[in-house]
């Protein structure tokens, strides 16, 4: 037990020593074996005198026997302690860098979409919610918001995506109550009034904020969020039609800046994780409930 310990210590000393002293050690160690108690009368003493360095001579006395000294050279700088230290340090560094890499990647995603000056996605708006109350972009600030565009007559994709969104809301709510506002914006303002939105969204999640407005307001909103939508032209009153629109969830930060778009490739769990990770990274103040 004491031998490997001594060996490890010796190895540490040896590594910390500068390479210029390497030759000194080999010379003195040869003399150490010959006459351990005698100070070496090394050549070029002037050089040694100028240096205050002497521990090499003292270290000689750490080995009580020649066998001990020999064993240190047999095992070299490796011992189980050195190995353990190496593995732990390595694992720690790998963990740290992986963690940091992921954080930087999220930061980059969030930063990349943050335009200089005017935000690239999102912006000011003034619409009415499912209760007929006016809602502006200012009301959404202070919390993350997840914005989805759709329409109540949507045949398949929106209902599925809204169910997915409801699942995401639950997952995020479980960890960050009130940390996120789920927003549904209709692309079909002609048919989706506050009442229609209220009935429709109640079937998905009670937390939904449904937004509608005039055609021009919705058009401006969709443009701000870079959402493509097309309502057929020349619709007669009472005629049915479908609206074509983009199907992304837009994650907006508490300052109203766009963070990331979540698409159909994300499962609710993956999406919730992405949202929660972004929330973790947020340095500013967050409203809750």
């Amino acid at each position: 037990m004491s031998q490997p310990t001594a060996a490890a210590r010796a190895a540490f000393h040896a590594i910390s020593r500068a390479t210029s002293r390497q030759c000194t050690r080999s010379m003195s160690s040869s003399t150490a074996r010959a006459a351990p108690t005698k100070r070496p009368t090394a050549p070029s003493p002037a050089k040694f005198q100028t240096q205050p360095y002497q521990p090499l001579v003292q270290r000689r006395f750490k080995y009580k026997t020649v066998e001990e000294a020999k064993s240190r050279y047999r095992s070299g700088p490796f011992s189980w302690k050195a190995g353990l230290l190496f593995v732990i340090t390595g694992a720690g560094l790998v963990w740290y860098f992986e963690n940091e890499k992921q954080r930087m990647q999220r930061k980059r995603v969030a930063e990349s979409s943050k335009g200089v000056g005017k935000p690239k996605v999102g912006g000011p708006f003034s619409l009415i919610d499912q209760n007929g109350k006016t809602v502006t972009d200012g009301d959404l600030k202070g919390r993350y918001s997840l914005v989805y565009f759709g329409f109540t007559h949507c045949p398949d994709i929106c209902p599925e995506e809204l169910d997915k969104m409801a699942r995401m809301i639950d997952l995020v709510e479980a960890q960050r109550p009130g940390g996120m506002t789920p927003v549904f914006v209709t692309c079909d303002p002609a048919r989706d009034g506050p009442k229609e939105l209220k009935d429709y969204l109640a079937e998905f999640h009670p937390k939904f904020l449904g937004l509608t407005g005039t055609y021009d307001q919705i058009k401006a909103m969709c443009k701000a969020y870079r959402v493509y939508f097309s309502t057929p032209t020349e619709v007669k009153p009472g005629q049915d039609y479908l609206v074509d629109h983009s199907i992304y969830f837009y994650l907006m930060d508490p300052e109203g800046d766009f963070v990331e778009a979540l698409g159909r490739q994300h499962s609710p769990d993956q999406a919730a994780k992405i949202i929660l990770d972004h929330m973790k990274d947020w340095k500013g103040v967050l409203k809750s409930n």
Binding site: H153, R191, E196, Y241
Partner: peptide, 9 residues
């Protein structure tokens, strides 16, 4: 059927 109302779940 005519699309006058949005269908429920």
């Amino acid at each position: 059927r005519t699309g006058a109302v949005a269908p429920t779940r």
